[in-house]
Design a protein around this nucleic acid. Sequence first.
DNA 1: GATGAATGAGGATTCATTCAT
DNA 2: CATGAATGAATCCTCATTCAT
Lengths: 233, 233, 233, 233
Amino acid sequence: MSLVKLTCPIKKAFHAKRERRKESRPGELLEAALDLFVEKGFAATRVEEVAARAGVSKGTLFLYFPSKEDLFKAVVRENISSHFKEWNQTFDNFKGTSAEMISLCMNEWWRRVGATKASGIKKLMLSEAGNFPDIAAFYRQEVVEPGQLLIRRILQRGKDRGELRDMDLDYAVFSIISPVILLMLAKHSAAACVSDQVSMDPEKYIASQLQIILYGMSQAPLQNKSLKKETKE
Amino acid sequence: MSLVKLTCPIKKAFHAKRERRKESRPGELLEAALDLFVEKGFAATRVEEVAARAGVSKGTLFLYFPSKEDLFKAVVRENISSHFKEWNQTFDNFKGTSAEMISLCMNEWWRRVGATKASGIKKLMLSEAGNFPDIAAFYRQEVVEPGQLLIRRILQRGKDRGELRDMDLDYAVFSIISPVILLMLAKHSAAACVSDQVSMDPEKYIASQLQIILYGMSQAPLQNKSLKKETKE
Amino acid sequence: MSLVKLTCPIKKAFHAKRERRKESRPGELLEAALDLFVEKGFAATRVEEVAARAGVSKGTLFLYFPSKEDLFKAVVRENISSHFKEWNQTFDNFKGTSAEMISLCMNEWWRRVGATKASGIKKLMLSEAGNFPDIAAFYRQEVVEPGQLLIRRILQRGKDRGELRDMDLDYAVFSIISPVILLMLAKHSAAACVSDQVSMDPEKYIASQLQIILYGMSQAPLQNKSLKKETKE
Amino acid sequence: MSLVKLTCPIKKAFHAKRERRKESRPGELLEAALDLFVEKGFAATRVEEVAARAGVSKGTLFLYFPSKEDLFKAVVRENISSHFKEWNQTFDNFKGTSAEMISLCMNEWWRRVGATKASGIKKLMLSEAGNFPDIAAFYRQEVVEPGQLLIRRILQRGKDRGELRDMDLDYAVFSIISPVILLMLAKHSAAACVSDQVSMDPEKYIASQLQIILYGMSQAPLQNKSLKKETKE
DNA sequence: GATGAATGAGGATTCATTCAT
DNA sequence: CATGAATGAATCCTCATTCAT
């Protein structure tokens, strides 16, 4: 504050652009780094490229991040969804049906995470978990655990309310989770996930998955006896 | 001529060890490379490490694979499932219900691919597709396309036979595919996929997924009207 | 010898080809090595290539030459002209004019050395003298010195006989030597020596050089009719 | 704007040293590389050695030259005589005798090329022409062709003016060229070219060669008094 | 703070040499 | 003797990191 007073207006104006940039430097670097790490992986990404994409020099990057590894960790931390507190509250206050809740959940997840750049973090962690055990553990704790738990609570609530069938919830959660993960991965590594013969519309994809899942978890159905046989190996 | 007679069994045995080794070298190297590439990614894996794990020296690796990149491509090619011809035949001759068929499909996939080391290829392609567009295209063509197509044919048959509901099959296939992919990824990057609070048994996981999916795709159910509402964004 | 008696005739016939080859192996290797060393230089030549060109395996080469460097030295030694004794005798007995002698000298040199593969040694020594001081010293002593000396003696004789002008013979020798060296070099590195616009015929080249040199060295430059005779091979 | 005023001389001096170094780096590297390539050949020269001789680290070399091969090509290009335009002009304007012209030519060549480091390029091309066909072609086109052509024009003029005898000029040029080439080669690979019994003084060597050549090429080989004058530098 | 020239440890690749067969 | 698979020292080249300006 006092500094502001000392810097004469002219000088202030002069430095305005630079200062605004300065403050946003780390953010620009993180964004560039996220893009490149997701695209090429940690090892195959050169810091110079990150710097170039952020419009600064190599040296500047090291001004903000002491090492490439620190940059990587910052990227993960920065993009880790901190939505769970909010989502848990939403869950706690939710009055609708389980179907509504599950649907809301998948759609929100897509809208808030999947559709954003942050979705790349999933692919990144998948690739680099082995190389960065500590950051992987952090990710699991901050994202995987809460996510899995939230879904589980939703399903539990559904069971308790008699809306959902009796299922082994530890496994059932993945009926919700896996389609969303696939969607995120397909976004960043299409060739490894989906045929290029058909185009994927995320909204329709989610709707389609929901239809099947919700149907499949719902209470009523009765006559599917044939199923049980095959599940035994 | 007489020489032929002279080559006594002992001499044959002489060459045996070395030759057997020679023939198995590429395989040993490919196996070691698969492990390491899957674990650490292409760039972070050192060829010397691959060689060491295969029990040979750095130079030997280059005797069989002209470059690290060629090694990578060989690893992918080697581990790409050539099961589709067989699976398509199985499908063509199949007499059972769709539920049986889908169940068979998931279980077979897991048993033949997911549970083997080849499952690592999925993770590998996810990570490296961007860095190896040509091999990614090859993978898509040899694995992704046929897999997606096979599932689609199974679902189509189910629809035609009146066993499965009317669904957009281009999307429905992912209800089968995504749980299996998640299972394969979880196997190689657990931290990025699943909570460590609960242990995952693949058989139970698949059974659990099947139960929901088959339920969800089956014809009969009726009273799930609430669903449709929510699918709208 | 005794071995020969023990080997029955049949076996002998059987081994005949192989044995003949065996004896010529070193020669074949030396020839292949000369070619390649001259073409690409010592360092850029791979022993495997030498072996392959000689039709044997890499290991066999090391059976005859303990190291690449030894092979190199053998190549040089093998191809070093041992003509000087003979040539000195020819000189001692020579009865003709200096012009005839010089002409004979250049033509012989070309015919016996320049036109053969051994000519490559000059280029080889030029390139590798710095890397192999000992072999270079050997070459200088065995080839350069005697050659220079022989020419000098020829010129001295000419001076003494009043056929050649009074010249500083230490330098005059190079009027004979340099054109021949150029011819040898041009043979192995055309691009570095001569335009490709005009084709060089060695015989004409030498005749042409002789004409100028002899003229230039002659006492009363008039009666040099003898020249033309010698230039014809 | 005001900034311009602010850049005080001190700041300018600030960058001076490093910038001057930066600008001179390629030159220093090229010089070191020329030395070493000429001395040891391309393959036997280690880039680290070049860097060390230029007083920088290995990495710095690659900052200026993308590869060892590019360094080599740059060395050749850098040292290729661009004197021919000037020399051709000199020739066009020349008023003196052919003897004077030839004498000037050899002496200039020596002074401007032979006596400098650039003379090493001849040896380098001789050794590496086979390994670098494209740069050899470039060298032939930029040096060999123009040189040979210039000499030819000089001789043609001499013939036309009745000063030189009727000779096959395609071959006669080498009477001028070969002594100079020998001199250049002797400078860099003495052991391969000249006896160490006698010391060679380039000036005397050229004078000596000129004496013979000019004599040898002259029309009525009697009145060549002019020669002696020119041989003096 | 920002820059980019310089560094040098690290990793891919080559190839002379060895040696079991 | 002959082979060629195996080796690992040597070398080119990359790129994260430093630091003078």
